[in-house]
Amino acid sequence: MKRLTQSECLPYEFMPITGWGRLPNGAEIVQYDAPMFFSFTEHSLLRQYPNMRAECHWHIDLEFTHIIHGHMWYFVNGEIVRLEEGQAIFVNSRQLHYGFTEDGTDCEFSCTLLNPARMSAPTAVYERFVMPLVTDETMPYVVLSPDDVHGNGLIAQIMRLHDAKFGQLKHATLPAARGMALANDTASLTVLSCFYAILHELTTIAQERGDGTAERIKRHPHVATLAMMVDFVQQHYVHQITLAQIAAAGSVGRTTCAAIFRELLGQTPIEFVNDVRVRAAAELLATTQLPVSAIATQTGFSSSSFFTRTFRRLMHITPLSYRNGMLSSNNMDNS
């Protein structure tokens, strides 16, 4: 795939809005689209995200990212893997992760989150199958390939979850913008069916790896420190934040703080702060009628002009154009 220029970013394609926010413990807030069974699915392009990268984050949900067209690099706890077209990745609960590009090429993908504690599983099922999976330190992630029997089975379930929300789409065709809901109420049963099928495949993979006796996968030595600093930023981005404060959150010095962000995220700490603020601002632009100046203040920017410059640099569009584009997409979807 070729490198995309700014002019090739289609005006009606915008960063997915997912009920952005953080819980007090730093976990991502997920606005589920299957309220009975707590799942969320999005269909996206990397170019819809600032700097063509998702935000570094963690959550309690099981995550499945399926590469529909192109390729993507994926960070999990300090390890980086490249995902090719047709492949997918399972990321276990409470793992620090994000997807991104290293060569500037775009990637079309689907991402599904399943809350393992809210799938109506009987207590016996949860204790026997769900809890051992989400606490398995030998399996923070699994790359899934269609030519592997278990990988193929899991990818099929991921596609079923995608189709339950968006319907079957033509290759490389993004769905129209829509609300955070499944296609219909009975599709929630599809979510539940897929969850149990996925649980079966993942349990089988874990058993084939040694039934819990496999060697614990060691995290990058700085992942825990990075997680504390990321959590601090995500909880305090609405205020002015200094490098010293970010470093203190990870109990390291400013030089070490900057080195960890550069090594693991490819950003300076302040670049990460602005990234978080822009994502929060995009949510407010799409879901409120607040003036740009008020949004700048509420998301921690020192001035409206600095907010506009930063938003345009990361999103390749002005805040007002972004808002107008989101309104047009929503109106088209409701017509």
Rank of each mutant, 00 (worst) to 15 (best):
D275A: 12
C9W: 14
G78M: 03
A258M: 03
M229R: 07
L144K: 00
C257E: 03
G78N: 04
A177L: 15
A176E: 15
Q245M: 06
R53T: 14
A197N: 11
S293I: 03
F64I: 14
A177N: 06
Y98K: 08
E42K: 11
C111V: 05
F307I: 05
L226M: 11
W20R: 10
A88K: 03
E79S: 04
H57Y: 02
L314P: 01
G153I: 03
V142R: 12
D275F: 15
G210N: 07
S303E: 02
T213D: 03
L264I: 10
L133V: 00
A248P: 00
G167E: 03
L83S: 10
I80W: 06
F37S: 13
I68A: 13
T318A: 13
E102C: 08
I67C: 09
F38D: 12
L96Y: 10
G167H: 04
I29D: 08
Q240V: 02
M139F: 09
M15A: 07
P146S: 15
M119A: 08
A176H: 05
H150P: 03
V149F: 14
R279C: 09
T18Y: 07
M315H: 08
K218Q: 02
Y49D: 03
I198R: 00
T41K: 03
Q95M: 12
W73Q: 13
L192E: 08
F311Y: 02
L202T: 01
I217T: 07
R94W: 06
D147V: 13
T318F: 04
C257Q: 09
L182Y: 12
R160V: 07
F37Q: 10
K170Q: 14
N92C: 10
Y141Q: 09
D333S: 15
G266F: 04
Y32G: 03
T268C: 11
R160W: 01
Q6Y: 10
P221F: 08
P122C: 12
A282E: 10
E63N: 12
V130I: 15
G104Q: 03
V273W: 11
Q240G: 01
A117C: 15
E85M: 02
K170P: 02
L45N: 05
L83P: 01
L182K: 09
I241Q: 00
N334P: 00
N324W: 01
M315D: 11
E215R: 10
T41R: 06
G325L: 06
A286H: 04
T190Y: 09
T135P: 08
D231I: 01
D147M: 09
S110F: 06
Q267E: 13
H200W: 08
V278K: 00
S93D: 04
